[in-house]
Design a protein around this nucleic acid. Sequence first.
DNA 1: TCTGGGGTCCTCGGGCCT
DNA 2: TCTGAGGCCCGAGGACCC
Length: 434
Amino acid sequence: MAEAATRSGRCILHVDMDAFFVAVEMLRHPELRGRPVVVGGAGPRGVVAAASYEARRYGVHSALASTIARRRCPEAVFLAGDYLHYADVSRQVFALFEAVTPFVEGLSLDEAFLDVTGARRHRHGEELAWALRERVATEVGLACSVGVAPNKFLAKLASEAAKPTASPTGVTPGRGVVVVRPGTELAFLHPLPVQSLWGVGPATLERLRRLGVVSVADLAGLSESVLVGALGKANGRHLHALSHGQDDRPVEPDRGVKSVSQETTFASDLHDREDLWREVVRLSDAVAARLRHLGLGARTLTLKVRFASFTTITRSVTPGAAVQTGPAIAQAVSGLLDTVDPAPGVRLIGVGAANLGEPAEQLGLFDEASARGGAWTDASCAVDGIRERFGDAAIGPASILRDGAMRPRRRGEQQWGPTGPDGSGPDEPIGNDP
DNA sequence: TCTGGGGTCCTCGGGCCT
DNA sequence: TCTGAGGCCCGAGGACCC
């Protein structure tokens, strides 16, 4: 079955930065090297975004509640994180990727697929992987792990196998580069636990366990019809193909944005509709600014609410015209907010925009401006210009003002959870100083 | 005091139309 | 006029990923 994956002769690299956010912080704070370091939300509802391998020895990992992380590793240095700086460093790293091949598909700031099938005419895939790893280390100062394989999903598994590991006894350096050669796909793949596969999360794992599936080999032993019956058509077919090493998805350098959203978790639950409305206006404004930056409008708007019980609901509306201003989005979402009862307590609220396309004209406040294409569009462009010159905090919707204080927030700020009740959060490393 | 933020994709049910 | 089938769109939510 691996033949299908190799017949095309593709060579894909998956490059994954090692503990990226933490590693970037260590470039700025060399004194932190060798210490347990955690980047993430430091407030009562924050989560870990990244942990150094020294911290992982204590069972600290990404998505772990910060409170638990502190309990497990009290001596760790906790950093609030600086998303914008990480994005800057990411651009440097991606520039090195693009020097190897134009076919680079970024998955996140710290991870990408590279199709080096063409570049391989000059050098072997493995040679390219080692050279790239070396360049990232010498020119940016960061470590990465690279998987080399005939398709994307095997390359991803290979890079995982190349990574360092941490256990209570210590940190074991990774192999750096792992190659899955054509003809060895199934030997590499089948011994792995089934949850290694892309798309097998807790829910799917539980269903597979009921079928007696533990390893990828077990999965490969089931027919496609059995998997479709258990997991649905798309997921069943997908996992059946993966279990046989088959993955024909191309590396896509320009994957367009499909949706834009912004959400926020409150340090303490909100019960008042007015408070929620202020947040909706602020989030709508932020989403609109990003839409304008992308030159897109949204036809579908979604309100997301997570209650104190952690149950989450979404409500969406498709008014018709594609909008890209804060007031237009807030207006559409206001009707959705009216259907929500905040009495039980709301811990998170979010505004999303989907069904993206050419922006339509907006309803205007002023006739003259409306006739020219929309007052809110004009006003929003002016706001964009002010923010460009003076920063995001310089201007915002008046309706989010309370007690004379606006609470602007930049994109990427507080990426990993709310700060304390007073809005404070650590900017400098906290924990036991050296 | 457990559980963030930003995405993508899929499934399912209901409404509408032919 | 009624009914069922099928296609399509929309809304809601689940699952998964980094």
